[in-house]
Amino acid sequence: MYSQGLIGADDKPVEDDAFIAAFQARIDAEEKIEPNDPMPEAYRKTLVRQIGQHAHSEIVGMLPEGNWITRAPTLRRKLALLAKVQDEGGHGLYLYSAAETLGVSREQMTEELLSGKAKYSSIFNYPTPTWADIGAIGWLVDGAAIMNQVPLCRCSFGPYARAMVRVCREESFHQRQGYELMMALAEGSDKQREMAQDALNRWWWPSLMMFGPHDSDSTNSDQSMQWKIKRFTNDELRQKFVDATVVQAEKIGLTIPDPDLKWNPEKNDGEGGYDFGPIDWDEFWRVVKGGGPMNRDRIAARKKAWDEGAWVREAANAFAEKQAQRADAATVAAE
């Protein structure tokens, strides 16, 4: 509702100390910032970048799972997977809408995704060679996403927070269907159990990487925390995820592929938590920078979808224009 008014607006607020202090005071008072409110340019840019990346991740995230829709083993699984992939598309749209309130267009964001300028979550650059990968994605990848997204429901920027409320409500079904799928495989034949364990082995570390670099190496973290875009640091969220997930793996008899994983009663201010082994950050950066197994395929698939959908967009616009002209002609005739 706000973006069309904002695009091209050039009356940027002057960012003197008083302006920054007044903005921070609103944030500290837990006031939500709405699109037409004055805000520091850096706040706007950070959100455009973050919400854009988040939206792209939802859209690209449809691809690894879409790979298995035609080969789902039962109708029940197929219905669930179809509904889940459709949800991801919907989440992408909620998020693009939220970003658009900040004065970027959908087309601009799509172009940045296709040109490689905008990033998306590195997790979607891994392949899905087996059916168990669908379970692992729902359980681990959506599980990690939920850890990230629940605090985003309280993000200081209103439209992003409201989009997240909708997303989180829907995301819980995603994780449960994934875990149930893994449970079915884990309780199945030896081969099925092996398949489940193999998927966990491949997805575990990339899932931990989803939370981003360690706090000590994260460049944007401090400012985002101060602006209450983020409520927890990367490492805090990663720890929550590990603590929640280890128990879930144990329940279905699967083993987390980390020899260093150990209960540490001192952790989390004495409540206890798991120590875990070092993350391979070289792999993380390689994948972020385009060197993952599926980076090229993912962008190629998005580009193909965009290009092959061009005629539909053109036809819809042409039809709308024709209808508008007819309506005008009818009005003139009536007068």
Binding site: Y94, A163, A316, A320
Partner: peptide, 13 residues
């Protein structure tokens, strides 16, 4: 109640 926004060529879509 307002729930969000979207792009579409015309009102039907």
């Amino acid at each position: 109640k307002h729930v969000g926004s979207l792009h579409a060529a015309d009102s039907n879509l």
